[in-house]
Computed example of a mutant assay.
Amino acid sequence: MSDTAFPPFDFEAGEVLLLDKPLTWTSFDVVRKVKNTLRIKKIGHAGTLDPLATGLLILCTGKKTKEIDLIQAQEKEYTGTFRLGQTTPSFDLETPVDAEQPFEHLTEAEIREATAPFTGLIEQTPPLFSAVKVNGERAYEVARRGGEAEIKSKQVTIREFEITRIALPDIDFRVTCSKGTYIRSLARDFGAALGCGAHLTKLVRTRIGEYRLSEALNMEQIDALRPPRPEGEASRPPRQQKQRRPERRAGLEYFNANNAATEPDSPTNSAIE
């Protein structure tokens, strides 16, 4: 979306806002930032994105919050990268590599053919490092303590699973899938099918139903929409901003420690108003 031309918004009556979620921000971080910046009373998001994923996050305000369940249920599209030959406990970059296997023997044909069993209606087990509840507790809280938990598999639908680039050990992909599909679990299962293991190193949500990432606002554009202060508020002394403590989500500490080039506006190194 253009940096300068914004459509008129009526947040109290209800809007569907498309946001490009920054790397390492949680979905709640984005909701909180937008709520406070635009002074919106009622707001929620239609489908969580993991902190290490970027891309389309849909926020609904006012009366449009009634449409959250409908939007969440729509088909999703993702692009990203799997790294073959290495596995991690979280199936992504939140945790260190725990095993390595050879991958050099794989041919391009074998890699592309291995996608076939993962299309259609399939059984998938969510990661332990996820927000799935186990006995009333988030699974990633169990994982953070070093515990184990039995997570039940569920049926999901993957309509398309396309390999778009092969540059071993990395392969790029595009997936269209139903609500509840874990791309990290797909990385694990795809690597197991190839016999070499794999984990997710990049994930971008590009579409939810007919809503597309190309139409989304970034956080700088949200700041540009900030309304003027109410009359009389400017005379009050400015409220001291508190540095927000980064969320201790699963292995974000590990990721941040091993990736010096964090996003400049990430909540890990700046306050969220």
Rank of each mutant, 00 (worst) to 15 (best):
R244K: 14
L200E: 03
T26D: 00
R248M: 09
R248I: 01
Q240M: 07
G55E: 09
Q243K: 07
T88E: 02
D98C: 09
R144C: 13
G180Q: 15
S2K: 08
E220T: 00
I68V: 14
F6H: 07
R207A: 11
E233D: 05
H199R: 06
T115F: 06
L93Y: 14
A271I: 04
K35I: 05
P96G: 10
T268R: 12
E215Q: 03
S130D: 04
S270Q: 13
I183M: 13
P169M: 00
S2Y: 04
N269F: 05
P127C: 04
P89V: 08
R226H: 00
P267K: 12
A46M: 00
K202S: 07
E94R: 08
L225M: 08
G146D: 13
P246A: 06
E123H: 13
A187P: 09
F255R: 04
R32T: 08
E137Q: 15
K63T: 10
K42L: 02
C60P: 06
L57F: 06
F173Y: 15
F255V: 03
Q241N: 01
T4Y: 10
V30I: 00
A167L: 04
A73T: 00
Q74E: 14
F9W: 13
L213H: 02
P7D: 11
G47S: 03
Q155A: 11
E104Q: 14
R205W: 05
F129M: 01
G197K: 03
A198S: 12
G191E: 02
R244E: 03
I68K: 06
E253V: 11
G191H: 04
T119G: 04
V204H: 01
E273W: 10
D223W: 03
P246T: 09
P102E: 12
P96I: 09
K42Q: 05
A192N: 11
I122W: 07
G120H: 10
F103P: 06
G14S: 12
V142Y: 08
R165K: 15
Q124N: 07
R236F: 07
L19D: 00
L200H: 10
I151C: 12
A116V: 11
F6I: 06
L19T: 00
D265N: 11
P7L: 08
